[in-house]
Design a protein around this nucleic acid. Sequence first.
DNA 1: GCGAGGGCTATACGCAGGTATAGCCTGCTG
DNA 2: CAGCAGGCTATACCTGCGTATAGCCCTCGC
Lengths: 214, 214
Amino acid sequence: MTDPDDLTARARIRDAAMRHFGEHGFERATIRGIAVEAGVSLGLVRHHFGSKQELREACDAHLAKLLGKLNDQVPADLAELTDPETSVAANPVAAARIAVGPYRDYLVRALVEGGVAPLFDAMVEAGADRLVADDRRRPDPPTVEPKVRAAIGAAMALSITVLHQHISRAAGVDILSPAGDNLLARALIDIHSHPQLSLDEARAALDRLPAEGN
Amino acid sequence: MTDPDDLTARARIRDAAMRHFGEHGFERATIRGIAVEAGVSLGLVRHHFGSKQELREACDAHLAKLLGKLNDQVPADLAELTDPETSVAANPVAAARIAVGPYRDYLVRALVEGGVAPLFDAMVEAGADRLVADDRRRPDPPTVEPKVRAAIGAAMALSITVLHQHISRAAGVDILSPAGDNLLARALIDIHSHPQLSLDEARAALDRLPAEGN
DNA sequence: GCGAGGGCTATACGCAGGTATAGCCTGCTG
DNA sequence: CAGCAGGCTATACCTGCGTATAGCCCTCGC
């Protein structure tokens, strides 16, 4: 976002494209609109990126690079990304929101219509590692591979971003705003510390399932 | 889906539209393509539904009606929707998959780009009711309104459908297929019966949060 | 039998927007 | 200075697609 050469026209075009794609979706966004917002001519967009499709791929790549970087230093970011202006401190939820913020809409679009697969897979990988460690401490051995559970976990984590408009409407609070950080954090802590199913219920549910096979 | 008058051209157009919108997205889908698939002329689409936008709204309405009906009789469906052909029996996950199946892609699109808000809100309402009942049995009183937790829960539930392509890829199994029903059900049971955070960890996390306010 | 209405088709219009071309201007290198 | 490369603009082209119009044909009521 604040790379030294991010003031080049090329970077401005890319950023404008990410905003437009995120806001309107790939189809509805127009090269002309992107060019206007970037303050360049229509032809220059085509000059730098060959076609609309290639422009999109460049955006995907850029997002992946950004979030990859972010992913690598989550711990550092958590400490560092404190934003004095909005009085959020030591709240991982707020940190994540701020970090992803500018690219949130684009990320959501990309997730739903393919693309950014590597990003998701990285999240799964990280989650699976954590699960493997946690599983050792479990009295009951899990019957499902860590990777599968991690994939579902990653989807659930992302669902807050992906469906934030619905969550916010239903909850009556903009969940992805400074005002919502605390609420969201508390809700997540509550949800993740209180199982929906008791172990007994879980066993009963498992027994009701049809025999292994498919 | 199997209404008596669902063989009318109007219904065929609507169904074709839902397929096209779901598969290609609203912008990329063309009225012409829909007309061809429905086996009618271009003009007839416009005759029945005034414009592309109105066609879309009709699709939204139809989906809401279908899923609303489904929602009302979930218990009945769970018993009834057993599909002998695919050997799924008494598996709620399979039942849900089969019920939503034909409209899955459309549902996902609609969820992400607005629309179908009432559907989501209904899920939240139902979830909140359940939470209120469960909360009474909790030793520690929840600090977050049921509605907020229910909204997040609904999003998490839907995330499996919305992000199924990523989950399936990462897990190496098509999670929304007969072959995946059992795996998905077992994974969900495991996840929902094993808290990610212990109560102690939860308390510690809560303490680390900045003071109430925002 | 005949007028009317509605399901349906064929054809045309208009334009938005992706793609393509031609060329300007500035700066660098030999 | 010559000349080239590359960032950049202006303009034109043309296809695809939403929208609009005109009218056919069949059925039903009188």
